[in-house]
Each structure stands twice: as structure tokens, then as C-alpha cells.
Design a protein around this nucleic acid. Structure first.
Length: 185
DNA sequence: CGTGTTTGACCAGCGC
DNA sequence: GCGCTGGTCAAACACG
């Protein structure tokens, strides 16, 4: 495992979970503020570079601690590491975080098109696959419920947006503001 | 009719 | 080589 960061408990400095280099930093909003605005809790997020490709959801069940509340806490690696297929370039950015939400679909300001849904091993919950619908933007995200705690939703972003969030342009809001979206599914 | 979702089929990587 | 698994495709479908 190489570099990754867990910053959930650090509400003071907060990185943009939406890997978009076009976006400015929005340091003025805290998770508390978000939690008030939104009906979910951004409980954990993990950014990892190209070398750290192990998926959260592939954590070995047998190795799982009963203390789920520790979240990932730097121990995301699975005991059965599975080499993932090349993401195209090693520069491909991946980013996962976990939110406490009743809704699986977060409106993060970008427009997503669902292109797949799959039951995955070791999880009773299906995984949903989304692509950014913006032309020329190949960012993908995966959304699934935490098998340990169905109250949590695990979202994994893959790639960088090459455009601005339509929502941030129109409403000048945080481009990565995650909002439960009742309009989707 | 246009847009987005659903879902079964298909493909590639990996372990045995 | 074969089976398992995760990821993607695309036709069919639903909905406004």
C-alpha cells in the first residue's frame, strides 16, 4: 500500500473528495455544516494513488474486525490482494469514501449515467456503476452499500473530471457537495 | 420522442 | 484450460 489519506475525523482541513483539478479548494465548509445541510454523514474517505488499487469492498471477510466503527483506518488492504486491470494510465486517479446515508445516490453536482449493476461476492448489496455524462469526460464511480453497516454507502470515484461541475457553474455551489438525490433511482 | 435505467450477456484477469 | 469474479456493453424498457 502506498499513499492514501483518511481525513474523516479531521473536519478542520478537508480535501475535495471529488478529484477534479479544475475545482478550487473549498475549505470553508466543514462536515458539520454539510451534515446539517444534508441528510447524511460523510463518515470516511480514502484517497489513493495509482499504486493503491485495492478496493474497499474486497476486504477479506475473515480478516474484518468486528470494530467496523474504525472504518478503514489505514487498513484497507485485503489479505487476498487482487491485481486490478490497468486503468489506462498509471496517472488514473481513484478515490473512495464512505458516507452515512439512507440514499445510495449522491448528487455531487455532476451528471452521472448508470451503466451497470452487479451483485458482488461477499456483499449482500449490489454495486452500481456510473459514468460521467459530460462529453469527453470518462470519470466513473461505483456505489455500493457497506456490507458491514447498511447505513453506510461506499462511493468510489475513478478518474478526473475534465470539466466543471454543471451544478457549480449554475449555482456556484461546492462542486463536490454530496446530496442525497431523490431523482435518481 | 428523447433521455435515462434495467438487466442479461459478454469479456478480461486471475487463481487453481 | 477452466471456472469464478468484476466490469462493461447494449437492447429493451420506463418515464417525462
Amino acid at each position: 500500500m502506498s499513499t492514501f489519506s483518511t481525513a474523516m475525523n479531521a473536519t478542520s482541513h478537508y480535501q475535495n473528495p471529488n478529484p477534479n483539478p479544475n475545482q478550487a479548494a473549498y475549505s470553508s465548509t466543514t462536515t458539520d455544516q454539510l451534515n446539517e445541510l444534508l441528510d447524511f454523514e460523510l463518515s470516511d474517505y480514502v484517497a489513493f494513488d495509482g499504486e493503491f488499487e485495492e478496493e474497499i469492498s474486497t476486504r477479506d471477510t475473515a480478516k474484518r474486525s468486528e470494530n467496523v466503527e474504525n472504518n478503514f483506518n489505514g487498513s484497507l488492504s485485503s489479505s487476498t490482494p487482487r491485481k486490478e486491470k490497468n486503468l489506462g494510465t498509471k496517472d488514473e486517479f481513484r478515490f473512495a469514501f464512505r458516507t452515512k446515508s439512507k440514499l445510495e445516490i449522491m448528487d455531487d453536482g455532476f451528471k452521472w449515467r448508470k451503466y451497470g449493476k452487479k451483485m458482488v461476492k461477499n456483499s449482500p448489496n449490489p454495486r452500481n456503476y456510473f459514468k460521467c455524462t459530460s462529453e469527453g469526460c470518462s470519470v466513473k464511480k461505483r456505489v455500493e452499500r457497506d456490507r458491514d453497516d447498511p447505513n453506510y454507502v461506499i462511493t468510489t470515484y475513478e478518474g478526473m473530471h475534465n470539466h466543471q461541475s454543471p451544478d457549480s457553474i449554475i449555482h456556484n455551489q461546492m462542486p463536490w457537495t454530496l446530496q442525497p438525490s431523490s431523482s435518481l433511482q
